[in-house]
Design a protein around this nucleic acid. Structure first.
Lengths: 333, 333
DNA sequence: CTGAAAGCGCTTACAG
DNA sequence: CTGAAAGCGCTTACAG
């Protein structure tokens, strides 16, 4: 059974499809309400669903946006994705999601696909030095907003970030105040600008307090596995330490597991602090002390920003920076 | 800067766009390799990206599929979504995701949107009695496969499920063998067929062992919150019990938190078992004993199935059922 | 080996 | 208040 088209409605109503288009899209400023009603009734009868592909071809707007995330399975990204989708949906946009696994080649292939689908814009959480993908976006005039992760050379593009360095400093200061001195830091992949920002915060704060010690720094990546591995390393290399600052929650979760396994009591034996405040940080016991990002807000605002640039609305600020908030829970004592 | 079109390439190459289309799509069985090369070269120069919207309009295939999940933030669904996206990507499909929050009205709106976008098919994890959405899909000839959650009246549609009842029975039997007798069961929302299936498994197994007791059953929903709430109820209503069988992992995680809070030692004081085997079940300590579903396989296979029905390939079996596997870890003793 | 033409289902100036 | 017509960028019989 063929799907009904505007032409079908037009025929049945005895008007032109121009008129049908007008009333369906509420542009018929001056179409008699009689025709309007008739058209709506027929549309209903025919279970008319507009073909937005045809619409897109003619308007060059698809009503869909793409989001690039490293891995939707990572709670931080799924929470952002959720917020984005909610906002998109409120504006009648659909969202296509792509998992880059932090591989810039995958990103590039996805970007091509998205462009070919005429996405109206993309929200881009960079997996690394993603300049090529971004250049393609630019070359094709596709609006995009960078989220969470800076990409070198594009600091002035539309972007939504949080104040990483400041957040880490807060965290270290708090630990210091709680009399921690040997504060281990687990950093994310140094390919990511954001890792370095966080590391800078740590370095600065530690130096401020005069307790900086390079051997306290471990590099890993922003996954559960990364947290585990780093922690195994720590246990192998360090005899004693007061606290571990993981540069995201997911790593902290992995780390806590390893520590518990090795008989450490948290927070009695070691204090732990994370970064992000994903939902999960509240379901472990004790609950994770962390430097919180307003994840949902970040997602929502980045989607709104994108839609604003798509619609060429006035943009008050191209770059939105969110503050972190230190959330004291049970893993620091 | 306007995006290049096939016409542009045709002009530059001095051929027709028919020819360009042929070579770009590898259908030019008999086009001179000279022209082919020329066309590819020009396409390259112009950074040509095909407009797949135009393509879709003419072929009536969009190369995108939709997936309906209750909430992408729930690890079980994000893991399925990931598997689906991986498979889709391998076949050059994109995926649009929708969060229904288990609200059938939201589902319906999304389905309309997806149809208007001409998705080639949808993978549907039902949020409840979703028959209306499914009817719309049917009426519009959009292929779909049901995943994880049965929907009444559509048991014979394309679907990918796991053997819920059998899985639960395995779990209860195991607990019984470990000398648990007072086995509490936390069921999911009774609106969901799948909850009832799991509950049936519990009831049957408990009766088999002659230890069935209705007051041991608590209904909640498949979320962390749901697990917490149910556990508070249990603590309020039951004086003693040997084990709690949560009907999914996420609930178990919420439950463990509450139990730990109340001073229970796991597994010394209570044994816990979940269902699903999400990644997270391995990062809590002790690791969660659970009835595992092959989540990734379910996602992958449902995507493959969908693509097969889209392409009208031979389908060996319309309904795929996966077996569960009891995974013994640290929360049962 | 290659092209002209119609068609996919919309939107949008333009005209009356 | 309403319609005819061109156009969006492809694909695909059909013809030569």
């Amino acid at each position: 059974m063929r799907k009904a088209t505007m032409q079908d409605i037009a025929n049945k109503a005895g008007v032109s499809k121009t008129t049908v288009s007008m009333v369906i899209n509420n542009k018929g400023s001056n179409i008699s309400s009689a025709t309007k009603e008739k058209i709506f009734k027929i549309a209903q009868e025919l279970n008319y669903i507009p073909n937005s592909i045809a619409r897109s071809l003619s308007t060059k707007k698809s009503g869909t946006i793409g989001i690039m995330v490293p891995d939707i399975t990572n709670p931080f990204f799924s929470e952002i994705a959720r917020a984005i989708e909610d906002a998109a949906n409120a504006y009648e946009y659909n969202v296509i999601f792509c998992n880059s696994d932090n591989e810039i080649d995958k990103e590039e292939k996805y970007i091509q696909l998205l462009i070919s689908k005429l996405v109206d814009g993309v929200i881009f959480i960079a997996g690394g030095k993603s300049t090529k993908s971004i250049d393609i976006l630019n070359a094709n005039g596709v609006p995009f907003v960078l989220v969470d992760r800076y990409v070198e050379g594009y600091e002035n593009n539309y972007g939504v970030y949080t104040l990483n360095k400041e957040g880490i400093i807060d965290g270290v200061d708090y630990l210091y105040k709680e009399n921690k001195r040997k504060i281990v830091f687990v950093s994310g992949s140094s390919d990511l600008e954001i890792s370095n920002l966080r590391l800078d915060g740590y370095t600065e704060a530690m130096k401020n307090h005069g307790i900086y010690d390079k051997s306290l720094i471990f590099e890993s990546d922003f996954t559960i596995e990364g947290g585990r591995n780093a922690t195994e390393e720590i246990l192998k290399n360090l005899k004693d330490f007061d606290a571990i600052f993981y540069s995201n929650d997911v790593m902290a979760l992995g780390g806590i597991k390893v520590l518990t396994r090795h008989g450490y009591k948290i927070p009695e034996d070691v204090s732990i602090i994370g970064f992000d405040n994903i939902h999960l940080s509240q379901i472990v016991e004790p609950e994770l002390t962390t430097v919180g990002q307003p994840i949902y807000d970040i997602g929502r605002e980045s989607c709104k920003l994108l839609i604003d640039v798509i619609n060429e609305n006035d943009i008050p600020e191209k770059v939105i920076s969110f503050k972190t908030e230190l959330i004291k829970r049970g893993t620091v004592k």
